[in-house]
Simulated assay, not measured.
Amino acid sequence: VVGKRCTTNRENRSLERLVKQNRFKNVGKLHKEWTEAGVKASRATTHRCVKEFGYSCCIPLVKLLLNHRQRQRCLSWAKEKKNWTVAQWSKVLFSDESKFCISFGNQRPRVWRKGGEAHIPGCLKSSVKFPQSVMVWGAMSSAGVGPLCFLKTKVTALVYQEILEHLMLPWLNDHGVDVPDWPANSPDLNPIENLWGIVKRKMRNERPKNADELKATVKETWASIPPQQCHRLITSMSRRIEAVI
């Protein structure tokens, strides 16, 4: 038998307004503000109501500030590639760098959001400093993961040219992969961003003690990614482009 609701629809709507005002409030903060407004409810009830509204507690994406020109270039690029097939995308190499930290776990803030809300302004966070870490540059295509390089410095134009010359070009020649132009600041269009996320989730239970152990773990995990997983990410390009447009 379902028990009687202890809160009214009006009270529930007031709780949802609190969530929308600041998506980064934890359950304890939401419960405090809700009950201070005169609602009689437990912390568990607060949590259950928020979940019933359709919100999940997620790790937020990091927002990127795009100026008008960058937005226009991104839109033009997306329109040019709108009708590309999976076969065409399968010939493209995607590359990017990412930061891997020695300390993994739930240190990052969490955000309440519904399906499809990952990119709305209220659900995004600004980038912050991280604990001891290593910078990694990698590449992938529909054929699977490509080369991996640990970087000692931030990726400047000169560093990137050296990476292309010594790592990417030989790999391209072996696999017959094309590299088209790319709009600036467009991680939402790059499936390797999802691949970095997959690698980091696989490493969640690892406890490297220093940078060398961290590098070894990254290399091992990167090598374990099957080509089928990369191919599935490539097939998402048409959906990404539709979303950008």
Rank of each mutant, 00 (worst) to 15 (best):
Q88W: 08
Q88C: 04
W89K: 03
W89N: 04
W89L: 04
W89V: 04
W89Y: 07
W89T: 09
W89A: 07
S90I: 03
S90C: 03
S90R: 04
K91V: 00
K91N: 08
K91L: 10
V92Q: 09
V92G: 10
V92C: 14
V92I: 15
V92H: 10
L93R: 04
L93F: 08
L93D: 03
F94A: 04
F94T: 02
F94I: 02
F94N: 03
S95V: 04
D96N: 14
D96V: 06
D96E: 11
D96P: 02
E97K: 12
E97L: 10
E97H: 12
S98T: 09
S98G: 15
S98A: 14
K99C: 04
K99T: 01
K99V: 01
K99Y: 02
F100Q: 06
F100R: 05
F100S: 06
F100E: 03
F100T: 03
C101R: 12
C101F: 03
S103K: 15
S103G: 01
S103M: 11
S103Q: 13
S103V: 14
S103I: 15
F104M: 01
F104Y: 00
G105K: 07
G105W: 01
N106D: 12
N106V: 02
N106A: 12
R108Y: 01
R108P: 00
R108V: 00
P109R: 14
P109D: 10
R110G: 09
R110T: 05
R110H: 12
V111F: 08
V111L: 04
V111W: 03
W112R: 08
W112H: 06
K114N: 06
G116F: 03
G116H: 05
E117T: 08
E117N: 09
A118K: 12
A118Y: 02
A118D: 05
H119C: 14
H119F: 13
I120D: 07
P121G: 11
C123T: 15
L124A: 10
L124S: 02
K125W: 02
K125A: 13
S126A: 15
S126G: 15
S126V: 15
S127A: 11
S127K: 15
S127R: 13
V128E: 10
K129C: 03
K129W: 06
F130C: 09
F130E: 06
F130G: 03
P131M: 13
P131S: 09
P131D: 07
P131E: 11
P131H: 11
Q132K: 12
Q132M: 10
Q132P: 00
Q132L: 15
S133L: 10
S133E: 09
S133G: 07
S133I: 00
V134N: 05
V134F: 13
V134S: 04
M135R: 08
M135G: 08
M135Y: 01
V136H: 02
V136Y: 03
V136I: 07
V136M: 11
V136F: 07
V136G: 01
